[in-house]
Amino acid sequence: MSEPNELNYWRKFLRGDSEALSNLYLLFVDDLYSYGIKIYHDESLVKDSIQDVFIGLIEKQDKLSISSNVKAYILKSLRNKILEELRTQNRRNEIKNLIFSSEENYSGYADTLFAGSEEHHNRQAILSAALKNLSKHQREAIFLKYTNNCTYEQIAEIMEISIPSARTLIYRSLKQMKQFVFKKPDK
């Protein structure tokens, strides 16, 4: 999580230190996998794409610049790799349908905090529905912010929008969820 660490590794890697790449890999592999699976639910395709992202880094090692946003750069590369892969496999129409599609349920988690009660289950169902009610774009932003712990700056870079737009996107999504969650039942 600590910013200086990833920048450190990144600088070392650019200077030709190959061990630094393994550190970057360890730092980001779970983020990449979680994100990839959300973009397209195919484990082996996601794993291959992660592999390609890092091979891409090795190939371009001497052409890369010192970016201050390593995490955003790597996550964005994965996004592009998966889309590219789907394109070459001629699954164009799947792209439209599957990126952050509403199929997933934010369903199960085990936690001691109020878990297991009926209210807990009801709340979970309402939250799932509220998330489904969002646009793909909004869901992606929420995922990056809360699941992958990205900053607004990183979200902006990954989704190719401005930083204020990233903030607004998150804020609007939360507001919209709130309205959904607390809407008065129909008469």
């Binding site: 996998y33 979680s34 369903s107 988690y109 936690d111 109020f114 807990h120 939250l127 809360y146 699941t147």
Partner: peptide, 12 residues
């Protein structure tokens, strides 16, 4: 709280 718990649980 439940929002935070469910979104973080999505981290695989």
């Amino acid at each position: 709280i439940q929002f935070i718990k469910s979104t973080t649980a999505e981290h695989r």
